[in-house]
Amino acid sequence: TEYKLVVVGAGGVGKSALTIQLIQNHFVDEYDPTIEDSYRKQVVIDGETCLLDILDTAGQEEYSAMRDQYMRTGEGFLCVFAINNTKSFEDIHQYREQIKRVKDSDDVPMVLVGNKCDLAARTVESRQAQDLARSYGIPYIETSAKTRQGVEDAFYTLVREIRQH
């Protein structure tokens, strides 16, 4: 089974770092803004072998026109913010609204991801993020692309959301 996953969120929150940590098991430290990259990885989730087709997208506003296209083809979405960047957390709402509009559905598989949880300088409390996820009816997972904490959990949870859909 193949799953088309799309990673969305503001610029600099760590979308590529999360994806590369999942696929290649290493942490990319330097920031190089993405336009669009796709990665494929075969994994076993709950005993089922599946192929993850992951689209890593641009957070930069100037590429926002490309969003409709990949939102149409994606089956599930990782909505990523950084726990030390309140603005990126506030941006999640717009991504969710755009996904709902493009998919013409209120019920699209999504996982809210709070990345950079290895950093002490948190400005978005776990509780705020949990409340937001609960209001959307989606899971919330904290990750660190640096330490790998929660990385597999985030992507695998999204696959489970798609399966249950």
Rank of each mutant, 00 (worst) to 15 (best):
T1G: 08
T1D: 11
E2M: 03
Y3M: 15
Y3W: 08
K4F: 07
K4A: 11
L5V: 08
V6M: 05
V6R: 03
V6A: 06
V7P: 02
V7I: 03
G11T: 11
G12K: 12
G12N: 14
V13T: 13
G14C: 02
A17V: 07
A17H: 02
L18T: 04
L18D: 01
T19C: 07
T19K: 04
T19S: 13
I20S: 06
I20F: 03
Q21P: 03
L22W: 09
I23F: 13
I23Y: 12
I23T: 13
Q24I: 15
N25F: 08
F27Y: 12
D29A: 09
D29E: 12
D29F: 09
E30V: 10
Y31Q: 04
D32N: 04
P33V: 06
T34D: 04
I35K: 07
E36F: 08
D37P: 01
D37M: 01
S38C: 07
S38Q: 05
R40W: 06
R40L: 07
R40C: 11
K41G: 11
K41L: 08
Q42I: 08
Q42D: 12
V43T: 12
V44K: 15
V44I: 09
I45F: 12
I45L: 12
D46Y: 12
D46R: 11
D46I: 09
E48Y: 15
E48P: 06
T49E: 07
T49L: 10
C50T: 14
L51N: 13
L52C: 06
D53Y: 04
I54E: 00
I54K: 04
I54P: 02
D56R: 00
D56T: 01
D56F: 00
T57Y: 00
A58F: 00
A58V: 05
A58L: 01
Q60F: 13
E61I: 04
E61T: 13
E62C: 11
E62W: 15
Y63Q: 11
Y63V: 09
A65S: 10
M66P: 12
M66L: 15
M66R: 06
R67T: 14
D68Y: 04
D68G: 04
D68C: 05
M71C: 03
R72Q: 06
T73W: 11
G74E: 00
G74S: 04
G74Q: 05
E75I: 02
G76T: 05
G76P: 00
G76I: 11
F77I: 07
F77R: 00
L78S: 00
L78E: 00
C79I: 15
C79A: 10
V80S: 04
F81H: 02
A82C: 12
I83Q: 14
T86P: 14
T86C: 11
K87V: 06
K87G: 04
S88A: 12
F89E: 07
F89C: 02
E90Q: 14
E90I: 10
D91E: 10
D91S: 15
I92N: 02
I92A: 06
H93K: 14
H93D: 14
Y95W: 06
Y95G: 05
Y95R: 09
E97I: 04
Q98F: 13
I99K: 04
I99A: 03
K100V: 08
K100R: 12
R101Q: 02
R101C: 05
K103D: 03
D104N: 12
D104K: 11
S105Y: 11
D107I: 15
D107V: 09
D107R: 14
D107T: 14
V108I: 14
V108L: 08
P109K: 04
L112R: 00
G114K: 00
N115H: 13
N115Q: 14
K116Q: 15
K116R: 12
C117A: 08
C117G: 11
C117T: 08
D118Y: 00
D118F: 01
A120Q: 06
A120E: 12
A120K: 14
A120I: 07
R122D: 11
R122C: 13
R122M: 10
T123E: 14
V124P: 08
V124K: 12
V124A: 10
V124I: 11
E125H: 07
E125D: 11
S126D: 04
R127P: 12
R127C: 12
A129N: 06
Q130W: 08
Q130N: 11
D131R: 11
D131L: 09
L132F: 09
A133G: 02
R134S: 10
S135H: 10
Y136Q: 10
Y136M: 14
Y136W: 10
G137F: 03
G137D: 08
G137I: 03
P139E: 11
P139T: 09
P139G: 08
Y140R: 03
Y140N: 05
Y140I: 05
I141A: 06
I141F: 04
I141D: 00
E142N: 06
T143H: 00
S144M: 10
S144P: 00
S144Y: 05
A145W: 01
A145M: 07
K146D: 14
R148I: 12
R148Y: 13
Q149Y: 02
Q149E: 12
G150E: 12
G150L: 09
V151Y: 13
D153H: 09
A154T: 02
A154I: 14
F155C: 06
T157L: 12
T157K: 10
L158Y: 00
L158E: 00
V159D: 01
V159I: 12
R160A: 14
E161Q: 08
I162S: 04
I162C: 11
I162H: 07
I162P: 00
R163I: 13
R163Y: 08
Q164R: 14
H165L: 14
